[in-house]
């Protein structure tokens, strides 16, 4: 464990908690893409199946349980509890165009052709594009609530911190996983546009409005 990975995980945890808090407090999931949340729940389910087979550490297991539980709790809030506030008309990104290619690529490009490894690879590829429906929703509505932009900033930062973690691990442990690194770069690059808007607008107290 290193500082980059720890702050990355905490940033990830913060993002998930901010999202739950926003929906619960405002009793509304407006501006939130349910489709992205479906993808995230899929990512965690596919990736954390080893939760019961190989124990890494208490921290690792606890975080996995929290991520899976929070993902499904968010889905419940969006599609059941506060369904009336779900922005169905704008949340239209075709996630099958993300799921199928990621599944295909995971079958072709992986470290080992075993169930757990292919599912892990699928979750890595899917996570790199899982935010697209959310970014698409923000671009369609042309704006995002400030709390939602904090959620996106924390979520985008987590994988950027993981990139630093991989650089650290490469130099100090000789460890690297090309699949995770390439997908992590793609994932972080997708946030760049949002990071720019967040830094130039939200930090200065102005609302996150996309230039029309």
């Amino acid at each position: 464990m290193n500082i980059f990975r720890l702050t990355g995980d905490l940033s990830h945890l913060l993002a998930i908690l901010i999202l739950l808090w926003k929906i619960w407090k405002t009793r509304s999931c407006s501006g939130i893409s349910g489709r992205s949340q479906i993808l995230f729940a899929t990512v965690y389910t596919a990736r954390y199946l080893d939760l019961f087979t190989n124990f890494v550490s208490v921290y690792n297991s606890v975080m996995k349980i929290i991520f899976i539980a929070a993902a499904f709790a968010t889905l419940y809030l969006i599609y059941v509890k506060f369904k009336a506030t779900y922005d169905r008309n704008h949340d239209t990104f075709r996630i099958e165009f993300l799921l199928a290619p990621c599944a295909l690529l995971a079958l072709i490009l992986n470290h080992e052709f075993t169930i757990l490894e292919v599912l892990w690879t699928f979750s890595i590829y899917l996570e790199s594009v899982a935010i697209l429906p959310q970014l698409f929703l923000v671009s369609k509505t042309g704006e995002a609530e400030t709390i939602t932009s904090h959620y996106l900033f924390a979520l985008g930062s987590y994988r950027a911190l993981y990139l630093l973690n991989w650089i650290y691990r490469y130099y100090f442990e000789g460890f690297f996983d090309l699949i995770a690194i390439v997908a992590g770069i793609v994932q972080t690059v997708l946030y760049c546009d949002f990071f720019y808007l967040y830094i130039t607008r939200v930090i200065k107290g102005r609302a996150l409005k996309l230039p029309a």
Binding site: N54, V56, K64, H111, E112, F175
Partner: peptide, 10 residues
């Protein structure tokens, strides 16, 4: 090349 890395990352 098979990388038998233990998955210790989240």
């Amino acid at each position: 090349k098979k990388q038998t890395i233990i998955k210790d990352e989240l």
